[in-house]
């Protein structure tokens, strides 16, 4: 009796979690996939099986090659942001994780400094974006300083509402996603391995490249997946910091939703999903993330 009862325990314990994901994650994805083949009128969407939405999404994309169509250009621009933000957050995140793990000697200090880097994660992203306005605007602090120092005679326009400010803001918000997993992997490295490397005559760079980086590979991969997926789907930073002028894969979907073109938005969402899954799949080929858990 007790055996039979406890056999079912994990099922009802996991049920609420499974139910939430079923209703608010799995079903929505399915619905998106189905609706991407539907048609729409002004107010409602209607069942059908048409490929029009995908054709619209890739309008003239293949016939006009080698010229890039809007969709390809948008994805190219999104991938460019992705690569740039990934590279910067990786180098920055790795450096900071290295500093906290190997250069800070007391555990208390390490925890305090690690918390210092993570606290902004618990505050609003929108506000962290707005915060750049008084710094980077035409009359902002940076321009005031540059003109005061005589470096430029006119305020620089490309500091705000530009690719620069989008990249800056994405790095600002997402570096923490690199720091935490890399820190986690790094703090598990057995110190004697590093001492062994030094004892065998390895230089600091050789130790870093041949010992530390391979051992933090999983953390790097987890951080990379997080940063890349966030940037691929981003429409808030690109919208706010790009002055609503820069296109991104996520922003295209948002614009179509606003125009009530739900099936086309759904088709674009499925394309974005496919691209993101392909990127994740490629990255998972390099590491086995399950080992970390």
């Amino acid at each position: 009796m007790l055996e039979a009862k406890s056999r079912w325990t994990p099922y009802w314990q996991a049920a609420p979690l499974a139910l939430v994901f079923l209703i608010f994650f799995i079903l929505p994805l399915l619905v998106t996939f189905i609706v991407s083949f539907w048609t729409y009128t002004g107010y409602s969407i209607a069942p059908a099986f048409v490929s029009d939405n995908y054709l619209t999404a890739f309008d003239k994309c293949f016939s006009s090659l080698p010229d890039l169509c809007t969709t390809f250009r948008t994805y190219l621009s999104t991938l460019k942001f992705c690569f740039l933000v990934w590279l910067i957050t990786l180098v920055l995140g790795f450096t900071i994780a290295y500093y906290l793990t190997f250069e800070i000697k007391t555990p208390t200090m390490r925890i305090v400094l690690a918390l210092l880097t993570t606290i902004p994660f618990w505050t609003s992203n929108v506000i962290r974006m707005i915060s750049w306005i008084p710094l980077l605007g035409r009359n902002g602090l940076v321009n005031q300083a540059l003109m005061g120092a005589g470096i430029t005679s006119q305020p620089i326009d490309w500091l705000l509402y530009s690719s620069f400010s989008v990249t800056l803001s994405l790095v600002h918000i997402n570096t923490v996603f690199m720091i935490v997993p890399i820190l986690n992997s790094m703090s598990r490295i057995d110190r004697s391995l590093i001492e062994a490397a030094y004892d065998n005559g390895a230089s600091a760079w050789q130790t870093l490249w041949n010992v530390i980086i391979p051992l933090t590979k999983t953390g790097i991969a987890i951080g990379s997946i997080f940063v890349i997926t966030v940037v691929m789907g981003d429409f808030i930073s690109v919208g706010l910091m790009g002055g609503q002028q820069i296109a991104s894969a996520g922003k295209v979907i948002e614009t179509q939703i606003t125009a009530l073109q739900f099936p086309i938005a759904a088709a674009n969402a499925i394309v974005l999903l496919a691209v993101v899954l392909m990127i994740i799949w490629t990255m998972l080929r390099f590491v086995d993330i399950r080992k970390e858990l």
Binding site: L29, F235, G250, L272
Partner: peptide, 19 residues
């Protein structure tokens, strides 16, 4: 659910409720 683009999840929920 953690890593897939939020805009896709958000749109999916909106579509589900519209249906």
């Amino acid at each position: 659910s953690l890593i897939l683009p939020s805009i896709v999840v958000s749109l999916g929920i909106a579509l589900e409720f519209q249906l």
